[in-house]
Nucleic acid binder design. Structure first.
Length: 529
RNA sequence: CGGGGCGUGGCGCAGUCCGGUAGCGCACCAAGCUGGGGGCUUGGUGGUCGGAGGUUCAAAUCCUCUCGCCCCGACCA
């Protein structure tokens, strides 16, 4: 819900006038915040005498994170609700962000030898049903096509919830000899999962992602691939999206249907809830057995191959919003920001405007060859309005250019993450812009890393976990004996799940938070999206 | 699937209890003044009140049915 500004909303920016009388609260109710006071955000009613500035206002991040998130997505024009239940429209600004994410990730995937291809959206039921755990896992959320035109189909078609089935089918056709292997194929596309409850970017019935599928001659090679791709994700998310992650293994209950092992990178959102940022699955020979994928080895023996798959979705757009955003709106990591630098010209008279325009043109073009620059010369908005608008949209760096700057042969640079202003002479502009963008990228990561560290706790009992989760959400490192019973019990009592069993948990025996039996090292628990 | 809320110009809402022929702010259009943190004035455009039935002289308002969306819980990238 996006409301006009000037209604005395809490935590708003740059608003004047007395606080408006309180109206009906948001229907959404309270959201709990780390260390927050659990207030319900007050929706505020319009009054006739109040003057509005007419700009979209967003909820306070600290008071109602969920409402803030929705408001930011809508107000920054990343996405909008569609007439189709559970499906959203990704708007140009949001799609541009996704495209930049794609190009960074795509390059990283290709650097490991992966090639892109495209497989059909429709998957015959008989194929989907071949791997038992796989069907069972996805059944509840599969959308089916039963009719084409006026004709009922002989076999119904699943709208892919994931593409293992169709790709394994093709792999069985293509795999002949060990000389053909490995198959390293990635697909950028959409999938459909009939979700009960949806949220913009975080969980929609249809979403965009990439899914990579590989086939190998040996289990070792498949495992190596699985871990390699997890590391590609880790680097992409940390270096390009500036989001620190915890890599690790999923427990059996959190494992992908049909996988022998599922690996994950887990990120921590600004409200202290965890988000799975990417997953990589080692299937062993589950799928090659089910789909009869065999090849002839060097020794003349026919044997089954080993497969992997790994995916990262538009959900990470939500991750960027929830990790970096602030009360003013989005903050985008420079590497993937659709607009990295926005130039806001300032003028009073027509004469000044033309002088400023000429000045901007004198350096804007050159700057634009290095970074993604947008100049906002629209005449119907004041500079102040533009400042707020582009901050809402998360542009990492703003250059203010007015008559004073023209006179000084300089501009005023303002970074989005901390709003620090500095004058920059034209001769140093290109270099300084690059430095500032790099520094914003770095600072965002550092800030997020500090947040993650400050919100990672140790607990030695379930009670203690509950206290921590009530007081200040985040990751909780705790001992776990390895049993599904204890895992389920903890979930039941705390709503926190095991997000990852870290690779570096050490050998120290630690008593299980629930039963006290020693397990190896500690695992990460959290309430998750 | 359970619980809650909401559908009235593009957006946000009032009006619904107590029927009388639709209103406010913003946005939008025009003009002028403005412009270094969400400007001001004046004048305008725009709505079969989610849909279908019904009651009535008269329905946004009352009755019945229906569709959709959002939020909160159980499942999931």
């Amino acid at each position: 819900m996006v409301r006009p500004v000037g209604r005395g909303a809490t935590g708003g920016r740059g608003r004047r006038g007395p606080a408006a009388p309180l109206g009906a609260a948001r229907s959404s109710g309270a959201t709990f915040e780390p260390g927050g006071d659990h207030t319900i955000r007050d929706g505020v009613r319009m009054t006739k005498e109040r003057t509005n500035t007419g700009r979209a206002e967003i909820a306070s991040r600290s008071e109602d994170f969920a409402a803030w998130y929705n408001d930011v997505v809508l107000a920054a024009e990343l996405a909008d609700y569609s007439p189709v239940r559970g499906c959203m429209v990704i708007r140009p600004y949001g799609y541009a962000l996704w495209e930049h994410m794609q190009s960074h990730l795509d390059a990283r995937l290709k650097a490991t030898g992966v090639e892109n291809a495209y497989f059909p959206l429709f998957i015959p039921e008989s194929l989907l049903a071949k791997e038992a755990e796989h069907v069972e896992g996805f059944n509840p959320e599969v959308a089916w096509v039963t009719q084409g035109g006026d004709e009922a189909l002989e076999e119904r078609l699943a709208v892919r919830p994931t593409s293992e089935a169709i790709i394994m089918h093709m792999y069985s056709k293509w795999a002949q000899s060990y000389r053909d292997l490995p198959f390293l194929i990635n697909q950028w596309g959409n999938v459909v999962r009939w979700e009960m409850r949806t949220r913009l970017f975080l969980r929609t019935a249809e979403f965009l992602w990439q899914e990579g599928h590989t086939l190998h001659a040996t289990p070792e090679e498949a495992t190596e691939r699985t871990l390699l791709m997890l590391d590609v994700y880790r680097k992409f998310v940390q270096e390009d999206l500036a989001i620190p992650v915890i890599p690790g293994v999923k427990t059996a209950s959190e494992r992908f249907p049909g996988a022998a092992e599922t690996y994950t990178i887990e990120a921590l959102m600004g409200d202290g809830r965890a988000l799975q940022a990417g997953t990589s699955h080692d299937f062993g020979s589950h799928f090659t057995q089910a789909f009869d994928i065999t090849f002839l080895g060097r020794d003349g023996q026919r044997r089954h191959g080993y497969t992997t798959s790994w995916g990262l979705s538009t959900r990470m757009v939500g991750g960027i919003i929830m990790v970096h955003g602030d009360e003013q709106g989005l903050i985008l990591p420079p590497k993937v920001a659709p607009v990295q630098v926005v130039i806001v010209p300032i003028w009073r008279s027509d004469e000044e405007r033309e002088r400023v325009r000429a000045f901007v043109e004198s350096f804007g073009g050159a700057l634009g060859t290095h970074v993604r620059v947008r100049t906002d010369f629209s005449e119907d908005k004041t500079p102040g309005w533009k400042f707020n608008e582009w901050e809402l949209k998360g542009v990492p760096l703003r250059l203010e250019v007015g008559p004073r700057d023209v006179a000084n042969n300089s501009v005023v640079a303002v970074r989005r993450d901390n709003r620090q202003k500095e004058p920059v002479g034209l001769d140093a502009l290109a270099g300084r812009v690059r430095e500032l963008l790099d520094d914003v990228q770095r600072s965002l990561f550092e800030r997020a890393r500090a947040f993650l560290e400050e919100h990672t706790f140790e607990a030695s009992s379930v009670e203690e976990m509950r206290e921590i989760l009530d007081r200040s959400r985040g990751f909780i490192l705790a001992g776990w004996c390895g049993s599904a019973e204890c895992e389920a019990e903890v979930k039941e009592r705390t709503r926190a799940t095991i997000r990852a069993v870290p690779f570096d948990r050490g050998d120290e025996p630690v008593p299980c938070v629930r039963c006290g039996e020693p397990g190896r090292g500690r695992v990460y628990f959290a309430r998750a999206y």
